[in-house]
Nucleic acid binder design. Structure first.
Lengths: 166, 166
DNA sequence: CAGAGATAAGTGCGTAGACAACTACTTGTC
DNA sequence: GACAAGTAGTTGTCTACGCACTTATCTCTG
């Protein structure tokens, strides 16, 4: 470890430590935990996913949303919203997925501006092949860490946060 | 709204909806809420930050970590770890911050492989000027959404998640 | 104390995604 | 029914970052 502790004490002229007293308030700490916890979790999930399959978490998320949608179909703008992405980013994400053959864009029956995205049979198979490993990762990195009560609280709390920011 | 409801029912041959029954389990839903909630929150915070100041959340996070560190100093590798970034990404983030004059790299007194990053006086001023707006955003998008108890639960739970994935 | 392995940080390269501008279509309002 | 305003999706451009590799230094073991 370093010898930082040996240096002179507070030789700054402008704002010193006291300026930032509020930084350890429980509310800010709570935000810090949320931020760091979710980022670490996501980073490790992504690493797991890339190691076992050649899929990114964004791609998986789209497939999951489609699998959850009626008739395995959804509009690009819905997916963009659910995945918290811009429409431009979504266009390219869908391009990639379509070139892999796991989704397909169909003309929307009534709105000629846009499309309906469909999970193909290949996409469903692909998803089915990826999910077990992904669930293992979630179990190891997330679910097993918390009790059922904690998991339920977290779910409720984060649903509130999500809804408030929609 | 579309007329998706008028299409044929389940005409797929391969895996149909039943294949993905587990997708609505409370555990997966909990993960979904965490993911979407934190992403939405982060996206809106970032937008707020960019609108009022010309700073990204990553840059702010580094300044915050430094302000919280003893003597306003930390090693790049510590910052990389805390910000959940690779060393390469951190190098460039620090490059940007240093060219703005808000941090400075000093040679480490004992470890000649690396540096100590210091928050400059300008950096402290910059941070002080940015924090009030950021706190307003946090209040509006996050803190005001939850009760004190919920905030505390969330903090505890996410600290567990973070620690488990460190 | 020599040499192996670990660790700090930087670099070239590739890519995902934000942003802004644009087209095409839809939905109001008068 | 025409025109203004809103919405769906795509594209050019730019940038932040991950990944893999390299160099320099540290640390541990025999």
């Amino acid at each position: 470890m370093g010898s930082l502790a040996t240096m002179d004490d507070e030789d700054e002229s402008a704002p010193t430590a006291e300026t930032f007293e509020g930084l350890r308030s429980p509310r800010l700490v709570a935000f810090g935990h949320l931020l760091e916890g979710s980022q670490r979790l996501l980073a490790l999930l992504e690493a797991d996913l890339k190691a076992s399959t050649a899929m990114s978490t964004s791609e998986l998320e789209v497939l999951l949303r489609l699998a959850n949608s009626p008739h395995h179909r959804a509009r690009p703008s819905e997916l963009a919203d659910q995945c918290v992405m811009t429409s431009g980013g979504t266009t390219r994400l869908l391009d990639r997925l379509e070139s892999q053959g796991v989704i397909q864009r169909e003309p929307h029956p009534t709105d000629r501006r846009g499309f309906v995205v469909r999970l193909t049979d290949d996409g469903a198979e692909r998803l089915a092949s990826v999910l077990p490993g992904h669930f293992d990762s979630l179990e190891r990195l997330f679910w097993s860490v918390l009790s059922d009560e904690e998991l339920q609280s977290l779910s409720d709390i984060m649903r509130k946060v999500r809804d408030a920011n929609r």
